[in-house]
Design a protein around this nucleic acid. Structure first.
Length: 771
DNA sequence: AGACAGACTTGGAATAATATTT
DNA sequence: AAATATTATTCCAAGTCTGTCT
């Protein structure tokens, strides 16, 4: 059976380190620093990367590009890697036109035909290449250390800032008191006329058609923003006394509260694969030890000797008990969460009540990175009000922090869309509380995104011919950019920003591809100029694809790979930054990811056109839709692990079909009999019987058809995830228009949440909308 | 020009809710 | 009504990209 798409992490161990108590930020920073030092030069990229590879092939790619005329067949296109004419630096002697001055090349020897000038240049170029490589590698090596240091300093500053702010905070604290009072009054007031008033208000605002209002091309995101602040994760509840932890098989050991809490994080995950990974264990144990009392530290020396089984069982049981609760109890719980949602889940934005996306702070736990993440298992600390920055309008009811606590800061920045933020301790990055996708702020942005993609439609031909021309550029930088852009366009690859080595899983996108990620085949499977991609992309999802490329691209790739090690960057002269600023010049608002959006949406539109048969019933039309959607998901490489119950449910479905077939046969036989009967009797009654049987037969046929469609759909969808493309890449107006045109109810395509998110599109697109 | 932080989008898995079957 | 399968929602990690600073 094919395995899931996730990368299987190698099991390298990592250094462990004890340590005294520090503040959190400091601890994290310290650890980063230490790691950095160890890492320095400890392993080459290549070495490190062995291990991480995954299996499982992707289904055949969907071709997103129309066949384009082949490049001119002159020999110029063929100049061999490193061939003259490719300049490292700008300002070389002006050469005629695109590829002027570049002569042919021969595979292999590289001798003979070259004219002297060319050979000279070639040397130059090759040297240049070496140099370049060096610089980039060096830069890369140096950067992470620098960054880490900076971060560390930040963290420290943060600390002292906090301390000094504590004093300053007294002012705002007073204010808060007054707002608290105001709040009380307000809540009393609302209680009286609550129901009708609120309902009315709600309805009205649910229907806020912001898309009918005039757009403001402003940096200002809102004029009014009022909310209650985040809802904090519940505090830790100590284990009951009868649930025990054992160390080294001895008598039970009573843990301090903090130690116990962290132990439960691990215990809860016991039957998860994560806990079998060495990195996970090491990271966990190190972080855990740091939170232990000295005494505990002395005793608990090895994770292997820790017995969490009772704790684990306790949570499993608890979970089951919760599930088995009588329904009144469940109802009660539900009401409670609804109440919380009602209170914290909404904000007022410019006079409208808007749903918040994630109004809860993330609970503490163990970090679960994806793929082979070096930080998996680290302790994710509890977010306290003192960590949280609140953003709201000045004149609004400032949210009240939980009793006895203060906010880190309250600010009024209307150029950003977040309501609250905090710094997370694993990567030292910011987390935000933002609005739900159904909100104006998100919807407008989404709409705008598709408008940019539609503008790309107008210039994409020009851009394509430009990058095709650039394949022959004299400048290495330009060529690399042109080839990269070709991949981004043709294969819908992500841009591929640089990442901090050792801080995250080793994944790449287009610009960060390394030599080891592609293989060139002059001929493969009967096709010429094949490139085989095999790398881990976002979320460590494997991208595996064999594509025929155009000859100049193939030649260029050869050139780019020349004299490089497998761990070197393929596009060593290219960064996402320079690529994007180039794109920005071609079309305002254009960046690499727009190609993904554009190609996804245009593909959906084309596929819908090609696959939909107006005569079909709704089920068949839906299959067509799903197939079109699937084509996009394949293009974007959106994969999922095969659902656990897949085989089983497939069999069940098949059984159903068999049964239906049986029914069909019976119905046919019965119809036949009825017809014969009618022929014999010629009376009204027998005629009616025939009609009845006919109808039944039709019905069964239809049901069977539906089942068959289901099977097909399911089978084709086995390892493909449709959600992401539907939610993020496909202009909803295409789908809405399709629904309207072919009489498919919108609910068949979009569920409630999706309809909320795409309300703007549902409202504005008519059946002849064209992307 | 490059580094960086910040802000925002994109992503699959986990979990909860609901529908269907037994 | 319990068990199971399916779908919706939540969760939070991991990308992209821009503006600012140096």
């Amino acid at each position: 059976m094919p395995e899931g798409p996730r990368a299987s992490p190698g099991g390298e161990g990592e250094e462990t380190e004890g340590g005294k108590k520090h503040g959190w930020a400091e601890k994290a920073a310290k650890r980063q620093k230490e790691k950095g030092q160890e890492r320095k030069g400890e392993e080459t990229k290549k070495k490190k990367r062995e291990g991480g590879k995954v299996r499982h092939e992707k289904p055949p790619r969907f071709e997103s590009l129309k066949e384009e005329p082949e490049v001119e067949k002159t020999e110029e296109g063929e100049r061999r890697g490193g061939g003259k004419g490719v300049k490292e630096e700008e300002g070389g002697e002006p050469e005629s036109g695109g590829d002027g001055g570049i002569k042919e090349e021969r595979e292999g020897s590289g001798l003979g035909k070259s004219e002297s000038v060319e050979s000279d240049e070639k040397v130059k170029v090759e040297n240049g290449l070496e140099d370049e490589k060096d610089t980039k590698t060096k830069a890369k090596g140096a950067k992470p250390a620098k960054r880490r240091k900076a971060k560390e300093e930040n963290a420290r500053e943060e600390k002292s800032k906090k301390a000094s702010e504590k004093l300053e905070k007294e002012g705002p604290a007073q204010k808060r008191k007054t707002t608290e009072e105001g709040d009380k009054k307000k809540s009393k007031k609302t209680k009286t006329g609550e129901n009708e008033k609120e309902k009315k208000k709600k309805e009205e605002e649910d229907k806020w058609k912001w898309w009918e209002e005039e757009k403001t091309e402003d940096k200002v995101k809102w004029k009014q923003l009022e909310h209650k602040g985040p809802y904090f994760a519940p505090l830790y509840e100590p284990l009951p006394d009868n649930v025990k932890f054992y160390y080294d098989g001895k008598s039970p050991m009573k843990l301090s509260l903090a130690t116990e809490e962290i132990a439960t994080f691990y215990a809860k995950m016991l039957d998860h694969e994560y806990t079998t990974k060495e990195i996970f264990q090491n990271n966990f144990f190190r972080d855990w030890k740091e939170e232990m009392t000295e005494k505990e530290q002395e005793i608990i020396q090895s994770l292997d000797k820790c017995d969490f089984k009772e704790i684990h069982k306790y949570f499993v049981d608890k979970n089951e008990a919760r599930k088995a609760l009588p329904k009144e109890e469940k109802q009660k719980l539900k009401e409670e969460t609804d109440k919380i949602q009602e209170e914290y889940g909404y904000c007022i934005l410019d006079g409208h009540r808007e749903k918040i996306g994630n109004f809860k702070t993330e609970p503490p736990g163990l970090f679960r990175g994806r793929g082979n993440h070096p930080k998996m298992g680290m302790l994710k600390k509890r977010i306290m009000p003192e960590d949280v920055i609140i953003n709201c309008s000045k004149d609004s009811q400032i949210p009240v922090p939980p009793e006895g606590h203060k906010w880190k800061e309250v600010r009024c920045d209307n150029t950003v869309t977040w309501l609250a933020s905090w710094t997370e301790n694993i990567q030292n990055s910011l987390k935000y509380i933002m609005l739900n996708p159904s909100s104006k702020l998100k919807g407008e942005k989404d709409w705008q995104k598709y408008e940019v993609a539609r503008r790309l439609k107008g210039v994409v031909d020009k851009i394509r011919s430009q990058y095709r021309g650039d394949w022959k550029s004299r400048e290495m930088k330009t060529r690399q950019r042109a080839v990269a852009l070709y991949f981004i366009d043709k294969l819908a690859l992500r841009a591929g920003n640089e990442k901090e080595e050792g801080e995250t899983a080793d994944t790449v996108g287009c610009c960060s591809l390394r030599v080891e990620h592609i293989k060139l085949y002059p001929e493969l499977d009967g096709q010429e100029h094949m490139v085989e991609f095999d790398f881990l992309g976002k979320d460590s999802i494997r991208y595996y694809n064999k594509v025929p490329v155009e000859k100049p691209v193939f030649k260029n790739l050869k050139l780019f790979m020349q004299n490089k090690d497998p761990g070197d960057d393929l596009f060593d002269r290219l960064s996402t930054g320079s690529l994007n600023s180039y794109l920005q010049d071609l079309m305002p608002g254009l960046s690499a990811k727009v190609f993904r959006t554009y190609n996804a949406s245009i593909t959906l539109q084309e596929q819908l056109k090609a696959l939909t048969n107006p005569e079909d019933n709704v089920a068949a039309k839906l299959l067509a839709y799903n197939r079109a959607n699937r084509a996009v998901a394949v293009l974007c490489n959106h994969q999922r692990a095969t659902p656990k119950t897949f085989e089983k449910s497939m069999q069940a479905l098949q059984a159903k079909i068999d049964a239906k077939n049986q029914q069909l046969e019976e119905a046919q036989a019965e119809l036949k009999r009825a017809k014969a009967d009618h022929k014999a009797k010629k009376d009204v009654k027998s005629k009616e019987a025939v009609e009845k049987k006919k109808k039944l037969l039709e019905k069964i046929k239809e049901q069977l058809e539906k089942l068959n469609v289901q099977v097909t759909d399911k089978e084709e969808n086995k390892q493909i995830a449709l959600g992401t493309s539907k939610l993020n890449y496909l202009d909803p107006r295409i789908s809405v228009a399709w629904c309207k045109k072919f009489g498919v109810p919108i609910e068949k395509i979009y569920n409630k949440t999706q309809r909320e998110k795409f309300a703007w599109a549902i409202d504005m697109a008519d059946e002849d909308f064209e992307f």
